[in-house]
Design a protein around this nucleic acid. Structure first.
Length: 346
DNA sequence: TCTGGGGTCCTAGGACCC
DNA sequence: TCTGGGGTCCTAGGACCC
């Protein structure tokens, strides 16, 4: 029978850091930003020792540092994590009969045909550990959604099976925010409809959901409440839609020329990423966060172009729309690339 | 206590066309 | 003195994930 496994590395980034600094084992390790707790940054990953103090992903670094004064705080070192991730994914692909769909640096779906998914899960944990010295947890499911959610019950270093059989018993009474793809906003809107738990969402009337969320998302949320959806692990390589760069400045930018220069610097980096993909640009997006928290996005479609100067000229038109008299806290610029099937000439 | 940076996908509403 | 309905494209914004 066909099974979906969801493999998720345990405290991935912190674990990779501990591997190259064995003396950190057992200490509260926090990785985030440039490793400077006085800068504007958030926690990427905290080791389990740090989590015991209530520090977790997304928390401002400053707050984390205050909470654990003797924590080891390290800067994010993306190339190292990418390399470790590639090793893990290669090991997953080496499993006999496995179809692997990568979800991020530290997680992937693995589709397998087997009569004993737990045995496959344990074998994966052992072989990933042997190759990379990293521990992972594995969720087993009869759909992608159930496998993904199952992993959380297996952490750390465990295996958990979640299927149509035990879905209601395990998930029914839990709040909808525990579902993959339901966050704070949607769960609040659901609550306004009288829907608090996963079971209530699963049994909610179609009309109420589609009226609130539209025909597509409304039906999807109900399906999510049932743990349903696809059971197909898709290993088609993802084609990126675009590239972007965002920076929060240590102090807000006020000078007009300075803002323009900063935006063009970001654009250079974005265009380098686009060029590396060997594709053109069909759209631009400029995000500005004025101090303190109002964010504005300007977008623009442009005729497909790979000419750097042409794209920069179009971008200048967006940059000119930044309010001249307001301090800028964050700038982001993003280039959309043509989808493969709309690329001319192939 | 003060909120990053990289992405993805969905929806609403206006312009425009037939 | 009343103005349909379907489609596409574009901009802007919302929400979510890791």
């Amino acid at each position: 029978m066909h099974w979906v496994l969801h493999v998720d590395l345990d405290q991935f980034i912190a674990a990779v850091e501990v591997l190259r600094r064995p003396e950190l084992a057992g200490l509260p390790v926090i990785v985030g930003g440039r490793g400077d707790p006085s800068a504007r940054a958030v926690v990427s990953t905290a080791s389990y020792e740090a989590r015991a103090f209530g520090v977790g992903s997304g928390m401002p670094l400053r707050v984390a540092a205050r909470r654990i004064p003797d924590a080891v705080i390290l800067p994010v070192d993306a190339p190292v994590y990418r390399a470790a991730s590639a090793e893990v994914m290669a090991e997953l692909r080496a499993q006999p009969g496995a179809v692997v769909q990568v979800l991020g640096w530290d997680e992937a779906f693995v589709g397998v045909d087997t009569g004993d998914p737990e045995a496959v899960a344990r074998r994966i944990q052992e072989s990933v550990l042997a190759r990379t010295r990293l521990h992972c947890s594995v969720g087993i499911g009869d759909t992608l959604v159930r496998a993904k959610i199952a992993t959380g019950f297996g952490k750390p270093r465990g295996v958990f099976r979640l299927t149509a059989q035990n879905w209601d018993e395990v998930m029914g009474a839990r709040p909808v925010v525990d579902l993959w793809g339901v966050g704070a906003k949607v769960s609040k809107r659901l609550l306004a409809l009288g829907i608090r738990t996963v079971a209530e969402l699963a049994g909610a009337p179609e009309a109420a959901l589609t009226a609130e969320f539209g025909p597509r998302m409304g039906l999807w949320y109900r399906e999510l409440g049932r743990g349903g959806g696809s059971a197909v692990v898709d290993d088609t390589p993802r084609v990126p839609r675009g590239h972007g760069r965002e920076t929060t400045y240590p102090s807000d930018l006020v000078d007009r020329a300075e803002i323009e220069q900063a935006a063009l610097t970001l654009l250079e980096q974005v265009l380098a990423d686009v060029a590396e993909d060997g594709r053109g640009v069909v759209g631009l997006g400029l995000k500005v966060r004025y101090a303190p928290f109002t964010t504005k996005t300007f977008t623009k479609r442009i005729p497909e172009s790979s000419d750097r100067d042409v794209v920069i000229e179009r971008a200048r038109e967006l940059i000119a729309r930044i309010a001249p008299d307001r301090p800028v806290r964050l700038l982001g610029i993003r280039a959309e690339m043509p989808l493969p099937d709309e690329a001319p000439g192939d």
